[in-house]
Design a protein around this nucleic acid. Structure first.
Lengths: 346, 346
DNA sequence: TCAAGGTGCTAATACGAATTATCACAGGCG
DNA sequence: CGCCTGTGATAATTCGTATTAGCACCTTGA
């Protein structure tokens, strides 16, 4: 059943070949430096024994001798697999996995970091963050204190999603929301929309703040009228009501799930989209939702962000020294929920 | 600001707490043997330093010295996250994650196991399978040689999905397809269906073979007529054509994605489901597909299988000695694609 | 004949945690 | 005073591989 006796070691090979363990190691690693010389016939003898015995180096010991795991940690505030957020996280993880695979690294999911019933924390009682060589942080909102501590303790990490400074600059790869929102506003403006609204929180974390900033700047630049319609604690009907009441013709909705809900509400009211109201979706749904229309908006390059995060982490681990910060462009999505503003009696 | 160069070791903790590395190790492992005595206040001091520094034992070193590190490996032949198979793997991973969490284990995804451009192999140049205490194998088809080698080297593992012997019995937890398919055949037979077809490969791996076997046995038992309609390289229209031509009234479709495609083809031909043709789906879709009908068939207990695999792996690690092999029952799904056979002119 | 230089290999050690074998120091007793 | 016992901690060693420093031997050249 189990392999007979002990696992073969370099020591065993050395004994059989009549050389030292060092020599075996040198031959195995094919070291041909000027410093190290092995007679061809000795090398051949060692190789023969290795071939005959089928010896394979123990990866554990090998990694102990190097100083790294080749393990990358992935920390998410929300659970990785459970269904609610799976759709949102999935593309990031896809990119992370791809890149880790290419780099020959394994991924460690910190699935155990959950304080009972509580929100996850990076530093809980027995945090295993240090278990990996470095880690990738995933999550829309990241605890500021956690970030500060990661920085202070010099733990190599890269955040997916832009983060404000937390005592020091945070390494991140984010989506470049501002210009993307600006481009949408330009489009809407070009189609005659003059009363625009930002529908969403527009604050609370960096990414909504970035979108809101892009919105404000663009509205100012094109000389349109921009309002902010909050969503928390309100029904789609109420939101739609406010949009209609204030004569908004183009709604820039932070969360696509809200956009879908508002569209349904509009349908029930007899309003047509985009005939009566244009809807622009600012990103990807973070809540599970059945999207049955082609929302105009932009695509967050999630997979690319995942990939890039791992690449940057690798650089950090190589001792690059700097604090990488990158924003990746979002690609505009044509969709069918933006139309020319209907000329209407003022 | 810690120097980001090195990672924290027990030696560091020892220095800070003013004790020896041995003491730190003893405290960490909560050794309270009669042989080992640590003064409560010393223990507390060490624990405090550990808490403050967030020290975590290096799993590699641990695994080298001991033979456990509380890390469970998850090996998949296909990538874990990519979209094509995500929906299929997700429930398994969910179960695995849940159970691992309860056991206080972390999960290590072997994402690095790919030889450039090739299919993943468990044993590549420096296989990291041994990095974890044991591992769970996931994948519809598993390489026979890999299994044999895992067995030969005595690496603890449990396969999700039944596997044929590979030199020796393979530990697994699988879905009990045969009886599930048999139950569906019984149902169809009870509703008057006499010409049944198995639509799918019915071979190539254990799970299709099990379904096919269940189908054949059941058909024989109820004295119906059963045929095999292959799918590889054929369009849904062609398949549907063969079903019609041979007078099949109930199609047992291995892959739900195919079932959906066949239903669409039927719709275009003016055939009604289940009026003209009953469709039975044998499991869960392994390809992404929009399932807009309630397929009659059975549910593979994927989450439970994931959980159970981890539990069995734990038993194996405890040194249970045996080779656990379990099949979990599939739950029948009523659905709406099975109806009484239309009495039709022979 | 002995220093200089080249060649081929090995002893020693590091890596980080776990374990075994001791060791230092009380206090109690005869 | 010397012996014993219990307590609390540590030095030394182990796991298997990689690396560094250096040793022993041989050839040259003066």
């Amino acid at each position: 059943m189990t392999s007979p006796g002990r696992r073969l070691t370099q020591q065993d090979i050395a004994r059989i070949a009549g050389v030292s363990q060092t020599t075996v190691s040198l031959v195995l690693n094919n070291r041909t430096d000027a410093e190290v010389r092995i007679a061809p016939e000795t090398r051949e003898r060692v190789l023969r024994v290795i071939r005959e015995t089928g010896y394979v180096a123990d990866p554990i010991a090998r990694r102990l001798a190097e100083r790294r795991n080749r393990i990358l940690g992935v920390f998410t505030y929300e659970a990785v697999f459970p269904t609610a957020s799976a759709d949102f996280y999935h593309p990031f993880l896809l990119g992370i996995e791809e890149c880790a695979e290419e780099m020959g690294c394994d991924l460690l999911l910190f699935t155990s970091a959950r304080a009972a019933g509580e929100r996850r924390r990076i530093f809980n009682e027995d945090s295993r963050v240090r278990l990996a060589d470095g880690c990738v942080l995933l999550g829309r909102a990241v605890d500021r204190d956690d970030l500060a501590r990661l920085l202070a303790e010099g733990i190599p990490f890269v955040s997916i999603g832009r983060r404000d400074d937390a005592g020091a600059p945070v390494p991140y790869v984010g989506a470049d929301y501002s210009p993307a929102v600006r481009a949408l506003v330009d489009r809407a403006s070009g189609l005659g929309h003059r009363r625009l609204a930002y529908v969403g929180t527009g604050a609370g974390a960096e990414s909504p703040a970035d979108r809101m900033r892009g919105f404000r700047e663009a509205v100012a630049a094109v000389g349109a009228e921009g309002s902010h319609v909050p969503v928390t604690g309100r029904t789609p009907e109420e939101i739609l009501g406010e949009l209609s009441a204030t004569g908004v013709t183009a709604a820039f909705v932070e969360e696509p799930a809200d956009a879908v809900a508002i569209m349904h509400a509009a349908g029930e009211r007899g309003l047509t989209i985009p005939g009566d109201l244009s809807i622009l979706a600012l990103g990807a749904p973070t809540r599970p939702v059945r999207v049955d229309v082609d929302l105009t908006g932009f695509r967050i390059p999630r997979q690319e962000m995942g990939r890039r995060a791992v690449e940057l982490l690798a650089e950090v681990l190589e001792g690059g020294g700097g604090t990488p910060q990158e924003l990746l462009a979002c690609e505009l999505v044509e969709g069918s929920t933006l139309a020319p503003a209907r000329s209407r009696p003022q």
